[in-house]
């Protein structure tokens, strides 16, 4: 009998906790590079915009709008997230490689970067590497994608020849859809014609 009462209490308590126990805290903090983004916290009852450093909102119920933005002191943020912040993985390293016109031959300056890439791969191990071809918006799309893909594959081959394990390396093309510099259509841009090697 007693056990049943206990079980009943436990069930009631856990139902109570599931119904009312949640509380979510959201804080916008500066990026590692110092700039600041913007977020919107919303549910069916309303939404709150946050665009100031260390501003936060608390949400307790999906039927009530998120709380008004509240400014936190850096020490409060540190108290809540200290080790989670210090444990953030370092940003992936991006290498930008450029080629001779219409060719899979790297320009000399880019060719010299290959040894830096190998060093980064060794330092970041275990890691994953992506080799991504990019084009500008000039000329025939399908041809550009094909050329950027052949360039990316040529870079992959040189990395594999230098000892990078190709099971941890993927190759793709983003075509003209992920430019470094936004341009209009049919614009030749040397910065956008590139292969990016990403070491994580």
């Amino acid at each position: 009998m007693r056990e049943w009462i206990c079980v009943g209490c436990y069930l009631a308590a856990s139902l109570f906790i599931t119904a009312c126990g949640h509380k979510s805290t959201v804080i916008l903090v500066p990026d590692p590079d110092g700039s600041l983004g913007q977020i919107t916290v919303s549910n069916a009852a309303g939404s709150v915009e946050i665009d100031q450093a260390n501003q936060s909102t608390i949400v307790r119920d999906r039927k009530k709008p998120p709380g008004a933005p509240d400014q936190l002191a850096p020490v409060e943020v540190e108290a809540l997230f200290g080790k989670v912040l210090s444990n953030e993985p370092p940003p992936p390293i991006h290498f930008f490689l450029h080629f001779q016109s219409n060719s899979v031959q790297l320009l000399p300056a880019s060719s010299q970067q290959l040894s830096e890439i190998i060093t980064a791969v060794q330092r970041r191990a275990p890691t994953r590497i992506s080799v991504v071809g990019h084009t500008d918006t000039m000329g025939d799309k399908a041809y550009n994608i094909d050329l950027s893909m052949r360039r990316a594959l040529a870079v992959k081959q040189r990395l594999v020849n230098s000892g990078v394990d190709d099971t941890f390396l993927d190759v793709s093309s983003h075509g003209e859809e992920n430019p470094l510099v936004k341009t209009a259509d049919n614009v030749s841009d040397a910065k956008n014609r590139r292969v990016e090697v990403v070491v994580r």
Partner: peptide, 27 residues
């Protein structure tokens, strides 16, 4: 590239992220 396609979903609300560094604690 497409800020509207990034969502952090919490039990009581959803965060839309237009860049970039967000801390979340769900109790």
């Amino acid at each position: 590239l497409a800020p509207e396609s990034v969502q952090l979903v919490m039990p009581e609300a959803t965060i839309g992220v237009r860049g970039t560094h967000v801390l979340v604690k769900v109790d």
